Amino acid sequence: MTNEAVGAGKRAREVRDIVAVFVLSVTAVLTAWCGFEASKWGGEMSIAFSEASSSRIQAGNYEGESRDARQFDLTIYSEWIKADLSGDTQLADYIQTRFLPDFAVAFDAWDADGRQENSPLARPEYVPDGTVEADEWNTRADAKFAEALVNNQRGDDYSLLTVLFALVLFLTAMSQRATASWANWTLLGLALAAALVGIGVGITFPIKI
Score class of each variant (00 low, 15 high):
K82Q: 13
E63W: 05
D84R: 12
G114S: 10
V105I: 06
A92Y: 08
A112W: 03
A106L: 04
Q58K: 06
G42M: 02
Y62P: 11
R123L: 09
G60C: 00
A32D: 03
E63N: 13
D108M: 12
D111S: 12
G87S: 01
D68F: 10
T97S: 09
E117C: 04
Q90A: 14
W110A: 00
A28Y: 15
A109W: 05
F107P: 01
D111V: 10
A48Q: 02
D68L: 03
I81R: 08
M45P: 08
R123S: 04
L100N: 13
L100H: 04
M45V: 05
A83W: 00
A112G: 15
I47D: 13
S86G: 12
G43N: 03
A83E: 05
E117R: 06
I95C: 06
I81M: 07
A83Y: 00
D68Q: 09
G43W: 13
Q116L: 06
A109F: 08
D108K: 14
A28F: 07
S86K: 14
L85Q: 03
A92R: 11
S66C: 09
S54E: 03
T89A: 03
I47F: 13
E37G: 05
Q71D: 14
D111K: 12
L74S: 11
Y77D: 08
V26L: 15
K40G: 08
P120G: 11
L74A: 14
F36L: 04
C34H: 03
G114M: 02
T97E: 12
K40M: 05
E65A: 14
L121M: 07
S66Y: 03
P120M: 03
R70G: 08
A69M: 11
L91A: 10
E51M: 15
G114F: 09
I76A: 02
G60D: 09
A104Y: 12
S54D: 00
D84T: 12
A69V: 13
Y62R: 02
F103A: 06
